[in-house]
Simulated assay, not measured.
Amino acid sequence: MERTSSGSSIISDASFEPRHNYTFTRCDAEAAHRVEMHFKSLPPHDQHAMQLRNLIRYLIKNPFPVEDEVLHKILKLADSVFFGGVLFGRVRWEWSNPSQPRFETELIGTTALREAAQGGYETLIVLSEPILKHPDYDRRLLLSAFLHELVHCYLFIQCGFTARSHGGHTDGFHAIVGIIDKWAGSGYLRLCEMKANLNHFLNDRGRVIDVKLGTLRGHRHDGCNQSPGPQGEYLETAGFNPGWV
């Protein structure tokens, strides 16, 4: 069983694949439609949308490490701009633990969920610290991975475990990341790519190293992986506070 740095454990069950059913298809479509309608209802100069855009641009232009508090702020702003407050109190995120080798070579992010004490579902995002904090990659990789996982959180909260259909990359998921990607600048964060080609996110330092080595990395990592088990096998976390966001 894998654990994050805080002791949170993730129960994986890659074999679980819910069968297609009309109820989920409708829920998936309705969840995506709610994002579309909420985003369209924002005023032209929505304060939170402007803050989120400016924060993203600022992070990409500045080389210093991203502090955890900044990602917390992005979560709250993205929730306001795209998800209509659905994520509030139901999303927690952490960096991966060194004891989790998948996050060094295979995954840049994953989202797990469980039933929440207050009803519905709550989610836990785990981000790859070795990859997303690596000095060879610019901030777009971290921002892309984080926003990608927030979309999974939204659909899990709205539709439950069945949102793992198609590896979590449902029609609704594609519709939502398309909205965010277009808002950010089509192709800028590459949210619509389900697997992250790390070459696209190399910064100047990474490109110089590649040239000196005379090689092309060609690294492709899973953009995300859904790790919760089927209903009845919930994410067990040490010290998980359901009301924290």
Rank of each mutant, 00 (worst) to 15 (best):
G218N: 15
R3T: 10
R57Q: 12
H169E: 05
I11E: 06
Q100W: 10
P43D: 08
N62K: 15
S99G: 11
H166E: 15
F146V: 09
F88E: 14
D136P: 10
G89T: 08
A175S: 13
R3C: 09
I60D: 04
A238F: 14
F156K: 04
P130S: 09
L150S: 01
L55M: 10
T162E: 07
L127M: 03
E122F: 03
L107Q: 05
G178Y: 00
I108M: 03
G223E: 07
V91L: 03
L155K: 03
C27G: 07
V151D: 01
I108F: 05
A196G: 08
Q47Y: 13
V126K: 03
G187R: 02
T25A: 09
K182I: 12
V86H: 01
S144D: 00
L127C: 03
P101K: 08
Y234E: 13
H72D: 13
V70K: 04
A163R: 02
S165F: 14
E36N: 11
A196Q: 01
R53G: 12
R90N: 06
G167Y: 02
I108T: 04
A145D: 01
H20S: 13
L59G: 04
V177F: 02
G85P: 00
H152L: 08
N62W: 11
M194P: 10
P228L: 07
I108K: 01
I74Y: 03
F24P: 04
R220S: 14
G206Q: 06
E193C: 12
S15A: 15
G239E: 11
Y58L: 15
A78N: 01
E17H: 13
D138G: 06
D210A: 11
W95I: 08
P43Q: 07
E115T: 13
G168Q: 04
L147G: 00
